[in-house]
Amino acid sequence: MIRAVGLSKHYGRTRAVDDLSFEVRAGLVTGFLGPNGSGKSTTMRMIMGLDRPDSGSVTLDGRRFHDLPWPLREVGALLEAKAVHPGRSAHNHLVSLAQTNAIPAARVDEVLEQVGLTSVADKRVGKFSLGMSQRLGIASALLGDPEVLLFDEPINGLDPEGILWVRNLLKSLAAEGRTIFVSSHLMSEMALTATDLVVIGRGRLIADTTVAEFISSNTVPTVLVRSPEEGRLAEALAGASLDTTVRPGDGGGLVVTGATPAQIGDVAHGAGIALHELSPQQASLEEVFMDLTSEAVDYHGTTAVEAVS
């Protein structure tokens, strides 16, 4: 289990992480979400004892990183994929890491096999693609067979097959009872992999919840309606004693917020309007996330939607 209490960290005048508290439970994949520059990597570095918090603390099963006698056996981390001397072979890189924690050399071949790098084990890492480097980083995290695993953007640079492999790996590691904390700026990816979510924006906690709850509590149910008399339907809905808003859908039809499909059907029936479609819309995690963090994004593209509220 990872527990952060009141974590804060600033670099110069920038507040990277601001009074962040959360828990990451064992046996689950917990997604760590936030736009680029929101403080995810800083938080992960503080968990690994690499950056010192200005205030607050973070513990791994109740202990700070610097109190772990065998760090690699307790916590494995993929922080930067390309963080290997380009002139060293993958095998030698992993051997040098294994030696620090008295992990037998046979384990190196095992993790290389697990990530599918056995055939290039003796090649210089400088020749590796980003995807291969990412796999090597994952191998180094797995090396000590640790209970806690941290992955910072693990699917960057992977092909579709590799992405699927990472998803399954994360789930199976969690199923073994390990604590899995994986950061991403891609909501859709987390929807597929994670059970719990820690969401941050500008270094502050936005949500510490489950994926399912996160979506349901942050979305108002909407319904897509198609009808040959959409103009009349809109009027009928406005006239009904319902607090609805109606706007045209992107692909035609009407998007109705604030009423259930049953209520809309009743109104249409009462007005004698035929309906061709009446379907509840599930807001995607992506949309929820965009809404929530739009104020908390540091670097907007020029065409980005400005903060709504």
Binding site: A26, G27, R73, T100
Partner: peptide, 23 residues
């Protein structure tokens, strides 16, 4: 602890100088 890890962290000693020298 839910996981049976292969390299127990309860083993005496720690990741100290002697091992780092090898690395």
């Amino acid at each position: 602890t839910l996981v049976e890890t292969r390299f127990p962290s309860t083993e005496p000693g720690r990741a100290g100088l002697r091992l780092s020298l090898l690395s």
